[in-house]
């Protein structure tokens, strides 16, 4: 992994000194804040009707019960990853990396980890939401931890797909579009479980790949190792393919 650290530092530097990084963070927090407010309203209304508080509903509502979580990911992960390789190729700066003593794995690893660290940093302020909610309701922090594990896993896989799409694209717009299509396609494939018969192969396959189902499980504090394997495999396979794409640039 020769060259990994300087490249990772450069990636993080680029995200945080350009306005795009801060705009993305602001949009993410505004949308998540709005999403959290909707969930709080909904849980408060339910509690008032039932005459009791359900602290699990607040966390599971935020992390697993609404479509907003995924919409925000579809909206913000593609712009986060679109520049990783496509922009370097457009500007010609990819030659700086290809002619430096840097391995392909280090190049891909640094781009991926840079985007992943930025993505995870977006989630840090959301802990405050739960801190605020804790003033009025009990919060199970173990469930919260499994929810954050879920968003980390989903993000890790989406980002790996986005980095691969960026490596395959000649410009940032096609990288953006192809990432949106892939992550949306993956999400919709998971939703097929809702319209197929239980027990059917397609239903099983869709359930195995259903991000919504995975996040619903994790938001209840259930950590299933199959999910770890699914997202781990998806991430590693995408990153492996990306290193092959980078290696192919040297051949053509």
């Amino acid at each position: 992994m020769t060259g990994f650290w300087p490249l990772l530092k450069r990636e993080l530097w680029a995200y945080f000194v350009t306005p795009l990084g801060w705009v993305a963070l602001t949009v993410f927090l505004l949308l998540q804040g709005w999403h959290f407010a909707l969930v709080v309203d909904h849980v408060a209304a339910q509690s008032a009707q039932a005459g009791q508080q359900t602290e699990m509903s607040l966390v599971s509502g935020f992390f697993g019960s609404t479509v907003f979580l995924y919409l925000i990911l579809f909206l913000l992960i593609p712009p986060l990853t679109m520049r990783t390789f496509a922009e370097e190729r457009r500007q010609g700066t990819i030659d700086l990396l290809l002619t430096a003593p840097v391995t392909n794995a280090a190049m891909v690893g640094a781009k991926y980890c840079g985007a992943l660290i930025v993505y995870l940093s977006w989630w840090i302020p959301t802990v405050l939401y739960l801190g605020i909610a804790k003033q009025v309701t009990a919060i199970d922090w173990q469930v919260v931890a499994s929810c954050y594990l879920g968003v980390a896993l989903v993000g890790a896989a989406y980002i790996a797909l986005g980095v691969l799409a960026s490596a395959l694209s000649r410009n940032v717009f096609s990288a953006l579009l192809s990432t949106v299509l892939v992550v949306l396609g993956l999400f919709l494939f998971g939703a097929v479980e809702l319209v197929t018969k239980e027990g059917a192969i397609l239903h099983k396959a869709a359930r195995y790949a259903s991000i919504w189902a995975h996040m619903s499980e994790l938001s209840l504090g259930v950590i299933d190792t199959r999910r770890l394997v699914f997202y781990g495999s998806l991430s590693l396979l995408s990153l492996f393919l990306t290193t092959q794409v980078v290696a192919a640039w040297r051949r053509t």
């Binding site: 500007q91 010609g92 700066t93 700086l96 002619t99």
Partner: peptide, 13 residues
Amino acid sequence: IGFMPEHVPLYPE
């Protein structure tokens, strides 16, 4: 090797 390509690629920011 020190390589200077024809179109010098630089990070503008």
